[in-house]
Design a binder for these strands. Sequence first.
RNA 1: GUGGGUAUAGCGCAGGUGGUUAGCGCGCCAGGUUGUGGCCCUGGAGGCCGUGGGUUCGAGUCCCACUACUCACCCCA
Length: 520
Amino acid sequence: MISIPKGTKDMLPSEAVKWHYIEDTAKMVAAIFGFKEIRTPIFEHTELFLRGVGETTDIVNKEMYTFDDKGGRSMTLKPEGTAGVARAYIENMQGNATLPLKMFYFTPVFRYERPQSGRLREHHQFGVELYGADSYLADAEVIALAKNFFDEFGLKNLELNINSIGCSICRQKYHKALRDYLASNLNKMCGQCQTRFETNPLRILDCKEEKCKAITVGAPKITDFLCDECKAHFDGVKSALTAQGIAFKVNPMIVRGLDYYTRTVFEFVTTSIGAQGTVCGGGRYNNLVSEVGGKPTPAVGFGLGLERLLMVLENEHLLDEIIDDGIGFYIAPIGDKATSRALKLVTQLRNEGYSAECDLVGRSIKAQMKYADKISAGFVVVIGDSELESGQVIAKDMKCERQFIVPLDKFVESIEEQLDEYEANEHNCDCDCESDCENTEDCKCGCEDEKSCECGCESECDCNNAIKSCECGCEDEKQINSDNANKCDCDNSKDSNCECNKEQSKHNKNCTGGCNHEEE
RNA sequence: GUGGGUAUAGCGCAGGUGGUUAGCGCGCCAGGUUGUGGCCCUGGAGGCCGUGGGUUCGAGUCCCACUACUCACCCCA
């Protein structure tokens, strides 16, 4: 058997709803902030990442999926999303786009690393880029977008860390101070940090080795070396976040591993998925566009790991309610003649925009019912000889006991009509109707219950009796009493047109269809 | 690249000190009269016990190697 490549994951149909939910939420939030989608190729010229991400970074050094194409050009699968957008901006939009330009993307990202929990060789990111705004307001805008997105899910245990790593001028000053501080202890640090001392001393702060951590504890902080402009910018970011009610922590230790960052860097970190807790990372990169060949253009953005987000959401049980809708109609034919009639009905339903399916494997009626249940069919329609003869079928609601008698030749119109009517008359039931009025008047139905109605229906109380209209066809709602919820006192009760077949049904679940039967 | 853990049915797991036809739960399929789901009952399919060596009369079980997966470091989303 050929197995899936290391560090990759299949997205299975059973999980598709969750992905769609996350993506739809992201698109919605992006739209609210005025960001438009951009899609760029999954691979780029290797050169783009060498110059954009930086040749000294781990990502470029040892994690890229680089290959020569058949023309001998060196290509690389995107190791991050920002450089490709910068390239696309320069090639297509620079000079003619209205600034500030707001873009978002979804992209797979490839890095050759040892996989572990929350880290894959292929993962997916939702990313945001804001071009042409140098103000701290743009930094705050992008952070607010991420925050807003997380809030949509009700995420807990999430912390925003921010820092400023300054511009090239203040960073030079800082590097010097940092080197001076570390120099005396240089030989006590790990080999990697000794190399970093020369190439990028900032990264030493990020080292996880205990001996290095001990040395860096009292190290000078970059934030104390910011030039006046960078300092003002950072202060601006902080006050803008505060103004928007976004809590943050200044963490002088965060240093992103991509060379393009300038000034603001930030991370959203969660404690609920283990070691790899950074769900979103980003910052400002004013030098990136010019670095890859464009005119100097300020920019801010972030990348947000969707697999990690999914893990967080699942761990925090925030996706439990997200379930697949299932198929609308399942048509169960018995026999060949019925099958071709069923096919016709399925086609009609589909043409009207309803999801519908029909047996494809010649199963017995019982097996078809089981199948319909498994695929969460809304309604099942059995078609056999007697239905063909009478021209009428029964549409059975799989979630409760109600069913509708529907003429086959006008199925769609009739079922729509009956459902509308049902909704209009019976939406006071215990089912999941979405009404929620704030009617605080006392119940007028004559029951003793003084609670006010919680739904938006006409009835005023939420007691068991008055809300529900009599199903016998009489007009009198008040005659129903809670002791005898299935019948009203009127004379019509014997001819009740209740559709739930209470005599023969078992009612082993709560009826959600609006009939008054109590659970048995 | 460096460490630790694990590999038995589609999934989750049992299988003391080696011993005959390798089990359980869930899932899947089919039945429980003639045309109706969920619960329950019965039956069925499905395993070269990760791969390759070794020890032994005999290995799922013991030893070695390899591979895969997994967690952690590094780094990052």
